[in-house]
Design a protein around this nucleic acid. Structure first.
Length: 151
DNA sequence: GCCAACGTTGGC
DNA sequence: GCCAACGTTGGC
């Protein structure tokens, strides 16, 4: 079981939306490095839900990967902002996962706190100018984040 | 294959 | 709203 961190803007889709829906297809990722991480996810992996582009940004909870290797349906939808005309049903470009709501932390762990606690090498989300929306979190770091969430 | 132009992300 | 970071595109 691995830990990940996945970003979403709460104005678009936040943890409350996931709690309401119980599970969702994590669609709209259009970056190859992020996609490759999505491809390597397995059932039961856990992912920190990170709210980006909000005040303050930070980790707000946890989710569980419930289905790997999901074809992102938005790539074939001409009306979607994530439409990719170069992708075909025979050879889809964008795979993702289905995730299940696990928990909302009692309080957000803000980016500021994460910067104080972790180095950019350990937790990529604190890297300056980091734009990657899906990234691995080392086990030991994940445990510390969970401890922080409880404190 | 280089790299300038461009578009997007995301913190502030 | 600004703008730094940085991935992608396309001309050459």
């Amino acid at each position: 079981m691995k830990y990940w961190l996945m970003k979403s803007e709460p104005d678009v889709y936040g943890i409350d939306d996931l709690k309401r829906d119980r599970e969702t297809i994590w669609d709209g990722v259009r970056n190859y490095q992020a996609r490759n991480f999505l491809r390597s996810m397995e059932v039961g992996d856990r992912a920190f839900f990170y709210h980006s582009n909000t005040t303050p940004p930070g980790i707000v909870g946890l989710m569980t990967v419930s289905q790997p290797e999901v074809i992102d349906p938005t790539q074939f939808d001409a009306k979607s902002k994530y439409y990719d005309p170069k992708s075909t049903e025979a050879a889809p470009r964008w795979q993702t996962v289905k995730v299940e709501y696990a928990e909302t932390f009692p309080a957000i762990i803000s980016l500021e706190t994460l910067r104080q606690q972790f180095s950019p090498d350990d937790l990529w989300v604190v890297r300056n100018g980091n734009r990657l929306s899906v990234m691995p979190v080392p086990d030991a770091i994940a445990q510390k984040i969970i401890e922080l969430a409880k404190s």
